[in-house]
Amino acid sequence: MLRDITLGQYYQTESVIHKLDPRVKLGGTLLYIISLFIFENIWGYLLAGLFLAIVIKLSKVPFRFMVRGMKAIVFLLLITVVFNLFLTPGEVLISFWKLKITKEGLRIAIFMAIRLSMLIIGSSVMTLTTTPNNLTDGMEKMLSPLKVFKVPVHEVAMMMSIALRFIPILLEETDKIMKAQIARGADFESGNLLKRAKALVPLLVPLFISAFRRANDLAMAMEARCYRGGEGRTKMKPLVYKKEDRLAYLVIAGYLVIKIVIGIIL
């Protein structure tokens, strides 16, 4: 059923990683991604892989959930690999017809594949262990210095969390309107592209009207509950760094230092 789709693929369980402050996880993921792109050598990648493996183990999320995120980008990954493999100039290893595989190309292709896979799995760990709500909270807090430059950080975070709340409702509504139109003989499945696009009108118009009506109702309900933007607002669940969070920052910093040292020495 549509209503059971969970957004942001959060995996519910109790673990050290789950309990970390979302800012630690956001910042950590960012630093980890950067670490993947500095210095290119086997030992560095081994270290990054080891670090990731430990975090995954600690998170208690089954590994197959991590790989799930990979499926979506398999195509992208293949293209990157193929391009690097065939289009990098250098010492030719194998050649047939007009295509040549070079030693350098092979090397870059392998590294690129490893990098991208670790990047995706690394970000999956973050989304799997943090509720969408927590993520928006973390982002709001982390980006709050931007308020000085008139970036509407609070508003954007509020919009994201409202979207997260209403997406399941709108999905369910889509399902309902679709069924209602099918009951009136609508056909969403056959015909060419143009015909199919046209068939969406009876679905999209009611959906937009409903979304606007809901937005209007919600705005009124929020005002009635004294909402007037981020100014002067307190938080029910304020983000406070705990001992574990500071420790996690230290671990990440330690990892980065070792990664850089390995990169320079080897």
Partner: peptide, 23 residues
């Protein structure tokens, strides 16, 4: 369906009612 008015989409009443038989 329940709240069937939520599936209306045409510019006027008559055209909307035509949707079913047209299909």
């Amino acid at each position: 369906f329940q709240y069937p008015e939520h599936q209306l989409f045409e510019i006027d009443v008559f055209t909307d009612v035509c949707f079913g038989p047209k299909n």
